[in-house]
Design a protein around this nucleic acid. Structure first.
Lengths: 215, 215
DNA sequence: TTAGGTATTATTGTATACACGGATGCAGGG
DNA sequence: CCCTGCATCCGTGTATACAATAATACCTAA
């Protein structure tokens, strides 16, 4: 899973900028220039440009005559991404069950175990990271590189976008419980049930994001 | 629709390489180096690198210690992409109908008209280009940037991959007829019918690709 | 002959210099 | 006062130089 090469400045800049855009540090419509980023990040234009090209590919930014305009994720984008997930995450779940090895199952199990552990601690940072891992384990094990490549960016953006949703302890508890239910259905190789649980999980996540912080 | 800036070398290199990879000119597993591409294309490393980064983002290539390895599209990738399309192209069709303007409808109509024209000429190059346009008009008019960004790359890769399918005149005729049927359902704003026609169209395309050149 | 170590080479990662083009501001004329 | 044209500046596009790293080949010694 580990790449052979050490993380380059390009990659670091890319992830840094992606995080800042998705987290809202850079507002939609804001103009940023390469030189500005260079001085902010202390690197030359080459890695900055390569990072911007990748962000452009993901349509998180847009070129304008005055520089690079931040686009980011809109509420509608969030709903659209969730709608797509509702349709194809099912494929990933079925693929995961079909290709499941004991190692895969254990990995997924551990992710949920850790979630329950951090839930008792109220450690939202770890919870959020593990929430991402849970789904990415399924993507990685679904047997389809294409499906993985399609779903992983969607989920990453969705997660960052509603990154406040898990802040509420009750929300986090529900989310972990849903993960547990999905895991149990997967472990039982009950694909139909797992798919149904996943669908509920995604729909609930949408509700949580839409309803904001209320219980 | 037109970008404000003229097409850069980076973009040209990107499209050139993407085409060559998808068309099979560069075989899967083949190693290419930046300098090799520079001399082949007569440009410096900067645009080549930026193009490679974008291809990497699309997982068409992979970095290795010896250079850049071509990945391209496998038959399984093709099926996986088609499966995803089957699930979410429906969203695009429904969105297109919901957001349809007279201009949109006309544009789609023209695309099919031209297809029928070029069909009588047996002009497979134009037919292929219009086949792509037909779907991209729907993506562009579906009202969801996310959906467009998800479907467009899939369709581009699928189309390039099975670029021989439309060579057979009978196949091309069927494809155009299917487009006409979809268009009619869309024009009638019959979303359920349009979706069903689209589903058949995608499934037929899969069959055409799987069954190769036989009638 | 073979194994090991070193030197060389090949390739990428990064920084920077130069060129080009559009936007901006200012000045002059209507 | 506004409009137009020119000069300047800002930002990006491209090329190239330099650095670092990893693979390879060769040479030497056992």
């Amino acid at each position: 899973m580990m790449d052979y090469k050490t993380v380059s400045l390009s990659d670091q800049v890319f992830e840094h900028l992606e995080t800042d855009i998705l987290s809202g540090k850079y507002q939609r419509g804001e103009i940023i220039t390469e030189l500005q980023l260079c001085s902010e990040l202390g690197v030359s234009r080459t890695p900055v440009r390569e990072a911007l090209r990748r962000l452009f590919q993901e349509h998180l930014i847009e070129d304008t005559p005055k520089g690079t305009m931040v686009l980011g994720i809109t509420p509608k984008d969030y709903l659209d991404m969730s709608e797509i997930r509702l349709r194809i995450e099912e494929l990933a779940v079925r693929g995961f069950i079909a290709n499941m090895t004991e190692d895969n199952r254990k990995e997924l199990n551990e992710a949920v175990d850790f979630q329950e552990f951090y839930l008792t601690r109220g450690d939202v940072d770890h919870l959020r990271a593990l929430d991402g891992q849970f789904h990415e384990i399924i993507y990685a094990g679904c047997g389809s590189r294409v499906l993985q490549d399609t779903l992983a960016p969607l989920h990453k953006k969705i997660q960052q976008y509603r990154h406040n949703a898990l802040q509420a302890p009750l929300r986090a508890r529900n989310s972990v419980q849903e993960h547990r239910a999905i895991l149990e259905a997967i472990t039982a190789r009950n694909a139909d049930l797992a798919v149904e649980k996943m669908r509920q999980h995604i729909e609930n996540a949408i509700d949580r994001a839409l309803n904001g912080q209320e219980k």
